[in-house]
Every structure is written in C-alpha cells, then in structure tokens.
Design a protein around this nucleic acid. Structure first.
Length: 892
RNA sequence: GGGCCAUUAGCUCAGUUGGUUAGAGCGCCACGUUGACAUCGUGGAGGUCAGUGGUUCGAGUCCACUAUGGCCCCCCA
C-alpha cells in the first residue's frame, strides 16, 4: 500500500467506518464468547431535534474510548445508541415549521394529524445526530438503536407508570406548578432558570374593613396577581400589625374582603412586613393559604391572560397589560404608596425563555421520597461511583431534599397518560388502550375519554438502561447486558436524568438482587466545553465550534486526540479552534513514523523480545513499550483518559520517534542479524503502538493496521477494532537499558548544547572527547560510540575515565560526564562564558538550598531516611557538576 | 444565605499521598533539514505558583481568611 507523506483523514474515514459496519464489529456476537464478561454503555440519548455540539463530541469520544478499550480487552462490549423524543423541543420545532410553511397551528390540525406531522419530521430528520456520531467514529451497535417513542419503549413507559400508580406512588392533585404561558404546559422545577433582573417593588394599600381611612400596605413584585389575593399575612409578633390580625382587608377593584392572618413565615423586616397572600400564583403563598384555609383563586388563563376571576376590568388582558392597568388603577384610587427599584430573580422557562407563572392546576405527580432511598444508598455504599467524586455530594443533596415530580405535560408529542375516565371522572389505568364507550373495569360505566396529558420526557429516559434491552419482558439482552457499567454525561442532568435512572433501576428491576439493580456502576461527569474566553458554548450565543467542521478540517482522530489532551477529569476546558492543531500534528507524526517503519521492512526480520534483544536501543524501546502498555492500561482502567493520552504522546513522539528511530536508522540497510533484529523490534513496537492508540485515533490506526499487515506479508487475523489489547508478552522493563540510554542521551544532548550555545551549527562534524570518571558510564559510552557519533554528528569520539581537556575546546556537562568539543576560530567565547556562568549560578543556588536543608536538624530528624539519602546523593552530584562547570568556564 | 470549581510561563493546561533546579503543547528567539514527518529536527529565553496569615524541619501541594472569575442549590413578598 502506498501511503502519502501526509495523513489525509478525508481519504480514509468514511471507508474505514463502512468496513467496520460491514464487518459487524460493533455488534456483540449472538452468543457471548466463553468467559467474556459483558461491558455495557448506554448513550445519553440526544434529542431527536439535536445537532452535535462539542459537548457531544467530547462525551462521545470518552464513551468510544472506553468501549473500544473494553472490546479489545475481550469484554462482550455493547454501546447502545438512540435518541430521545424530547417532548417540548420537538413539538416546538414542528409547530414552528407548520406555521412557517402552512400558517397553521397544531390546534388547526388536531391531535392526530399533528402527531402524524411530528412522526413525519422524525423519520426525515430524526437520525441526523446519530449520523454525526458516526462521523466521530462512535462504535455503537447501530442494530440496537432505540428511540424513546418506539413501540417497545412506549410499552415500558406505560408499564412503569401503571406500576407506580398501582403502588400508590403516582397521584393526581391540584398543585401549584410552574406554567409556561408560551408553550402552555407545566414544566418541572428542573426546567427553570432563575435569572437576575432589574424590577420594581410596588407598595399597595388595602383598606381595612370597617376602619374608615385605615389601610394596610403590602409590597409586591407582581401587582397584577393582587386580583387573586385571598388574604394578607403579617408576623404574629409584629407590633405594628397586631391590632389588625383577625380583621379583614378589602381587595381593591374586586371589593373582596380578605382576612388578615398571622404567619411565622413573614419577615417583618422585608418590605412593609405585611404580605399579600395569593395562593393561586405563588408557591410560598400557596403554603400560607393552606395553613390558614384561604381559598385559591386562579386569575390566569393558560395563555397567561387574565380570566373572569380577575374581574371584568381586567379580563382578557395579557399579564403585562394587566400589570400596567392595575398600577394605574391603584394610582387613581390613591392606593399606590410608592414604587422601589430592586433586583430580583425571575424564573424563566428553559425552553421558551418566557417568565414562568406559578399557577394551580391539576397535574400528575410521582412521590419521590421512597424512590430516592435506594438511590441514596447506592451512592453511599459504593454501588454507584462518581468521577470526579465531588458530584456524589451534588447528587445526594438533591435526592435528600427531593420534591415530588410533576410528571404530566400538556403537550401532544409524548407518551399519553394511560388513564381513562368514565362519565363520572373515575380513573382507570390500563396496559391496553381502552375503547371509548367500553366498560370501565371497576365501575362498569362507559369510558368517555383518555387523559389528554402526556408524560414528561424524563419519564421515558429514566428507563433507558433497561427499557432499551426489552424490559418489561425478560429478554436475553436484558439478562446479558443489565446492569450497565459506565455512564458518561454532562453535569446539567445529574438530577434530571442520572438520579432518576438509578431510582428506576431499583424500582423496576426488582427481580434482581439489590446489589445488581444499580443501573450503572460508574458515572463519569465530563468537562464543560467553554469558548476561548471562558464562556459556555451555546447555540444562542453563537460561540460554538461545530465538531463536524472540525472533523472536516482536522479529521475525527485529531479532534478526538486534542479533546483528550485538553480535558482532564471533568475540569472545564477553554477551547479555541486552533487547539485542534495539536491532534493533527500528532496524528501526522504517527502516520509518518508508521510509514517509515514500513519503508524499512524490505528484508528479513527476526522476532524480538526483551529476553532476546541484544542491541541497547532495542532493549530500551521494548522496555519503554512494556512500561507504556502497563501505564496506558492502568490509566484507562481508572478512566484517566488524559493521562493515558499523554503517556502515548510521550512514548510515540519522544521515545520512539526522537530517539529510537534515530538510533536504529543505520542498522536497517543490510540483512545481517542486527538489521533483522531491528526490523523485528520495529514491527513489534508498531503493532502494539497502533493497538494502544486505537481507542483514541480509531480511523487512522485501522488504516495503518491494514497497511502494516500488507507490508509485513502477514495474514491479518482481524481488523484492529476487533484485535486484542496488547498484553506485554515477551516484554519487560529493563532498568539497565533505561540507564544506559540515559547516559547516551546525556552525551548527545551535551554536544548539541555546545553547538546551540555557539555558532558551530548542527551539521559540522566534530571530534569530541568525553571524560567519564565512572566506569559503568564509560563502558556504556565505549559501547555506544558509533550511535552517539551518528546522533551528535561527530567525526570521532574519544572516551576515557580521565581525559584532559583539549585546548581550544568547550565542555558540556551531563552529570559527572564531561564532553569536550573543539571550538572554531570564530566562536564567541565571551558569550559562551556568560551562558555557562549563568548555569553555574543557578546550580549554586540549588546547592545552597540543599546544603541548608541538610544542615537543618529538624529535617534530618523528621524526614524519611530515604528522602535524606536522596538529597545527600543529589548534593554530591550537583557539587561535582558545578565543579566541572566552573573548570569549563575557567578553561575557556 | 448555603455549596462547588478555578487562579502555576505571553496563551491553554499538567504537577498523584507535602521533600527534583516547578513541567508540557502552542507562541517567541537562535540554529538546522532535497530520503518518515516544515503538520519536521536541535537548543534557548520566559514563572516572587492570585494575596495574606497559619500548620510543618520543609508548602504550588495541607488549614483559615481575602480578592477575582465561573457554576449550582435555596430564598425575599
């Protein structure tokens, strides 16, 4: 195979991905291989309306690395993909489209026809984001792709709802909920964003009944809600108002007498110390109203306009208009005491960005307290581990204070609540659809309607880990792949999704032993991707980087590698587009190193192991490889992606390319034993390196894997995606080799150092003299003479224990070794002296510090003996080095 | 009000249980390269580790407080 000198991802990515698909590499074998443990990841299902953003790219890369690593390790690995129907978001998209194209609303079409439109949209556009995951290289089992509105998942949703209903954990009640007036649905607390805004505090005067001219002043940020007031509350100990407790105020405009009650919850120091009580439109007032038996008056229509309860003056006005009118009206009646400018937080709906109105309405709720208990236990007993660990606290705080979950939504797109009513409104839950007119199962009266609401989207996604495997049926997949092992997600949905999945696992997988019901055992909370200025990337801010653009420009592998180099353990990352250069440079480096190895494979080669290798550089690189395999495996086992990526980077670039390839080049020409061993070593290192890199850069390594087998004339046992993770067989860490190459590197660097400090230049061959007083080091240098000469560009190398410095030479120091290099006529010795003197000065500082430390009795008494020993040895070395440096300066 | 995270080289970030002359990549400077790679090689300059105080023989690392930036929860009618 001819490989171009640059790696061009576009040339390969699509083809490689297709070959993976064709080979079924991502799909677990029908029967698990003997002894293979399952390893399962469930993708956080993106919204069907979604477009891949950097967060997806990051999280997709993390999951793909884990699943590819486990697959190569021999696990029965499954990464199950899918999408979420995303009730509000999807309905909004289709409604918008419908209006833009046909000027129709969903009501114009009616429920059934509208839902057809949504399905139509889903069939056309619903797979876009999954296609984008493929571009990333995601090794999902696409044959198991699920959608939360699929028939089987819908059945699971219905089953779970009815089980909770039958257990009494689902109830219907009139409750204060957060109402989105634009989308006209209830939304949960978790879908609200509180935003600080400038606002006003209006002081309203309410006349006291039967006390001519007396008023009580209340302060409010929402004057229009006074139309729904059913009381005024003051603190029981507030001297100013004690006299009014038990009396009634008269609500302006409506002339409704409302009681003045005493309530501990009122803060006498805020506002006037008197609070209007609007149980229909304020959560705190709702509580107060309940305590004092105050009636609930709802003055808002579902679209946020004032209803008949608000009186004929205001009926039909929008919230904003009503506010103006109320204020003006009070002004006219001289009942507006004053207006203050304040800052306060306003609840906005995540979806519509409109101000959320608390209002009382009939909704379905799930009792959460009981469900939360096992989920709390799971985190405490280690069944569920968070990475980073600190998210455990966030998770527990929420669960320990969890509120009942408002699970109904007034939408059309979603799982309709499986409750039917007879003519008296008696509900019946049913797993099968009940026909209108059929008999109610308990009352026997005709069924007249199904509950019109649908369930919150999370009511399906909390079942994701097992509903996707066939639950409630006892399928083979469910038995084989549940519980799952690794979940990676964004921090925003720890409450919304993560906690609920854990709860659902314990609640619905009750046939399993408790210890196996935790839906997943590791929850990885990945980094948030910020832009170069440290702002969150978001569509609305327009500061996002499109991963597909990055893939087009840099390649998927480069993007993946860059992301792994940049993000560490969930620490937020600032990302500018040029950050992807790093990954591109690295993938190109790998490409060219592999290309070089293959070019040199033109002759015989021998199998080489740490035990059979003789050449020092072969022993060394095999030692480095052994260490790298061990390290990368350990880091990936611990989900330390950044550390694993960094180790690979160092190994490939520094050890292999910068040193090993340079050292081995000259041996590759002939066909002698040395050349055969060199080729064997290269082949071994390349094979294992490609395998280690594969989870990070899957496309490129697969291409090179192919090319390598072709070049080596080997029968390929499998595509890389299905090949075994390197086990280090025949490799061992070789401390002697590492030390010896260290000596060699020191001498080479010393020569390069002199060249760089002078104007000698890198190409002029030099006759170097090396003084190495230590016998072991001298032996290494003698043995590696030719290699050192090649790397340092030397015409000759004379080495001895105590060689004198040739006149007219400069010296560089590597530990106790001195390297003398002849200086040309034109070398500026003064500048050289300055540089050396600066180094000597730095070293003197270090030595001074060490000396002081070693004279310190406290240190000697308290520090670990080996630490002290190390410092002593270091001091000796540094003194020697300094002495050498000083003599060099003097000898210039 | 409560909590979490960050602050280390011009930029983006490492620095594992307290003990190296505090590191990497980019950028910068110098030198080099028609045989794997200019998406390259070699070397160099550049940091009072946000501040103050404490614990300790010893603090980038542990504790307290402060400052700046960011995030989350609960609240004020």
């Amino acid at each position: 195979m001819e490989l171009s000198s640059r790696y061009d991802p576009k040339e390969h990515e699509a083809g490689v991905y297709q070959r993976w698909l064709d080979s079924g590499a991502f799909t677990p074998a029908p029967e698990p291989p003997p002894g293979a443990e399952p390893f399962v990841i469930m993708i956080p299902p993106p919204n069907v309306t979604g477009v891949l953003h950097m967060g997806h790219a990051l999280n997709g890369t993390i999951q793909d690395i884990v699943i590819r690593f486990r697959r190569m390790q021999g696990y029965d690995a499954l990464w199950l993909p899918g999408t979420d129907h995303a009730g509000i978001a999807t309905q909004a998209v289709v409604e918008k489209k419908l209006f833009a194209e046909e000027k129709k609303t969903r009501q114009d079409l009616g429920r059934e026809a509208f839902l057809e439109k949504v399905w139509e949209w889903k069939e056309h556009h619903g797979n876009a984001i999954l296609e984008q995951y493929r571009r990333l290289g995601a090794s999902c089992d696409w044959t198991r792709t699920r959608f939360t509105m699929d028939a089987d998942l819908s059945r699971a949703v219905r089953e779970s709802f009815l089980r909770l209903w039958e257990k009494g954990l689902v109830y219907r009640g009139a409750r204060l909920v957060n109402w989105d007036c634009v989308l006209q649905t209830a939304i949960s607390d978790d879908e609200i964003e509180n935003v600080e805004r400038k606002g006003k505090l209006w002081y309203l005067r309410y006349p006291i009944e039967g006390e001519w001219g007396e008023t009580i002043t209340v302060a409010t940020t929402r004057p229009e809600t006074m139309l729904g007031d059913t009381g005024v509350a003051v603190h029981p100990d507030d001297e100013r108002y004690k006299k009014w407790i038990g009396k009634r105020a008269i609500l302006p405009f409506l002339d409704r007498p409302i009681p003045i009650v005493a309530d501990e919850s009122v803060d006498p120091s805020y506002g006037t110390g008197a609070v209007k009580v609007t149980p229909g439109h304020d959560p705190a007032d709702y509580e107060r109203g309940m305590r004092h038996g105050l009636p609930i008056v709802n003055v808002l229509n579902k679209d946020g306009t004032i209803n008949a309860e608000g009186g004929h003056h205001f009926e039909g006005l929008s919230r904003e208009k009503a506010r103006e009118e109320v204020v003006q009206g009070l002004l006219d009646l001289d009942l507006l005491e004053k207006i203050e400018d304040i800052k306060h937080t306003v609840p906005l709906s995540d979806r519509s960005k409109s101000v959320v109105e608390p209002l009382v309405s009939e909704q379905w709720f799930v009792k959460m307290k009981e469900l939360a208990e096992p989920a709390i236990r799971a985190a405490n007993d280690g069944s569920l581990v968070f990475r980073p660990e600190r998210w455990k606290k966030v998770y527990l705080d929420w669960l320990e204070n969890v509120q009942d979950w408002c699970i109904s939504r007034q939408l059309w797109w979603g799982h309709q609540i499986p409750i039917w009513y007879d003519e008296d409104g008696v509900p019946a839950g049913s797993r099968e659809d009940l026909e209108i007119g059929s008999k109610h199962p308990s009352t026997g009266k005709p069924i007249v309607r199904q509950d019109a609401d649908v369930l919150d989207t999370w009511a399906s996604s909390w079942l994701w880990p097992f509903a996707t495997l066939g639950w409630p049926d006892a399928t083979k997949d469910l038995a084989r792949f549940y519980p799952t092992h690794f979940l990676s997600t964004a921090r925003e949905i720890i409450y919304l999704w993560v906690a609920r999945m854990i709860m659902a696992g314990y609640e619905f997988m009750d046939e399993l032993p408790t210890s196996e019901r935790c839906a997943f055992s590791v929850c990885n909370v990945h980094a948030t991707v910020l832009d170069a200025k440290g702002k969150r990337m978001s569509k609305s801010a327009g500061n996002g980087i499109d991963p597909i653009d990055v893939i087009e420009q840099y390649g998927a592998d480069a993007m993946r590698y860059s992301l792994m180099m940049l993000t560490r353990e969930g620490q937020d990352v600032r990302l500018a587009e040029n950050r992807f250069e790093e990954g591109r440079r690295f993938t190109n480096k790998i490409w060219n190193a592999a290309r070089f190895v293959m070019m040199k494979m033109g002759g015989e080669r021998d199998e080489v192991t740490s035990a059979t290798a003789t050449a020092i550089e072969d022993r060394w690189i095999l030692s480095r490889l052994a260490d790298t395999i061990e390290g990368v495996t350990r880091e990936l086992d611990g989900y330390h992606f950044n550390d694993a990526a960094t180790r690979l980077y160092r190994f490939v670039w520094n050890d292999f390319c910068d040193w090993y390839l340079e050292l081995v080049k000259s041996r590759l020409e002939g066909d002698d034993a040395s050349a055969r061993a060199a080729r064997g070593t290269l082949a071994r290192v390349l094979r294992d390196t490609l395998a280690l890199l594969h989870p990070f850069t899957p496309f490129q390594t697969e291409v090179l894997w192919d090319a390598m087998h072709e070049t080596l004339g080997q029968q390929k046992e499998a595509m890389l995606v299905r090949s075994a993770w390197p086990d280090g067989a025949g490799l061992a860490v070789d401390a002697d080799a590492e030390r010896e190459i260290g000596v060699l590197q020191g001498v080479v660097r010393a020569v390069r150092n002199v060249r760089a400090m002078t104007t000698i230049g890198d190409r002029k061959p030099l006759a170097a003299v090396v003084a190495a007083p230590r016998a072991d080091e001298l032996a290494v240098i003698e043995a590696a003479k030719e290699r050192i000469a090649a790397l340092a560009v030397l015409s000759s190398l004379e080495a001895g224990a105590d060689l004198p410095r040739p006149s007219g030479s400069a010296a560089a120091v590597a530990g106790t070794i001195q390297v003398f290099v002849p200086l040309g006529e034109d070398v500026d010795t003064a500048a050289l002296r300055d540089t050396l003197e600066r180094r000597a000065q730095k070293l003197r500082g270090a030595i001074g510090g060490l000396e002081k430390k070693l004279e310190n009795e406290g240190y000697l008494a308290n520090a670990a003996p080996e630490v002290v020993e190390e410092d002593r040895a270091k001091l000796v070395e540094q003194r020697e080095e300094l002495a050498l440096l000083e003599s060099n300066v003097a000898g210039l």
